[in-house]
């Protein structure tokens, strides 16, 4: 590991630019958070309001999926550069997860 990261001191301008970039990113994270809270509120309100289960179930599952995408892509930076391999791992995991749930549920219900 002797020489895999030569130390680099940034110029003042570059430093300020990076700081600004990070604070813009942080504002986007706050927006994601607000959306997640909003989606959660919709899901709980729909159930509390007592709409038909056939209407609620697909919608709250969709809201959960959107929220998970926000977590993965924004909070966990899955869309950032250098995340190709790990995104492949994660999607493989999700694919196996989907098949697992599908298989067990269909075996029991039919």
């Amino acid at each position: 590991m002797a020489h895999d990261t030569p130390e680099k001191i940034r110029s003042h301008a570059e430093h300020e630019y990076l700081k600004k970039k990070r604070s813009t990113e942080m504002r986007h994270q706050l927006t994601s958070f607000a959306i997640m809270i909003f989606l959660t509120l919709i899901a709980f309100t729909m159930v509390a309001a007592g709409f038909s289960a056939y209407l609620i179930v697909p919608i709250i599952l969709l809201l959960a999926a959107v929220q998970v995408v926000l977590q993965l892509y924004h909070f966990m930076h899955l869309s950032n550069k250098g995340h190709g391999t790990v995104a492949f791992f994660m999607f493989s995991g999700m694919f196996v997860a989907f098949i697992t749930v599908l298989a067990l549920v269909t075996i029991v219900w039919w």
Partner: peptide
């Protein structure tokens, strides 16, 4: 590890739903 954990939880969710 997180990908593997996803599968772990999927099996628990599937068991619960069943």
């Amino acid at each position: 590890l997180l990908a593997a954990e996803t599968v772990t939880f999927a099996s628990l969710f599937a068991t619960y739903l069943a």
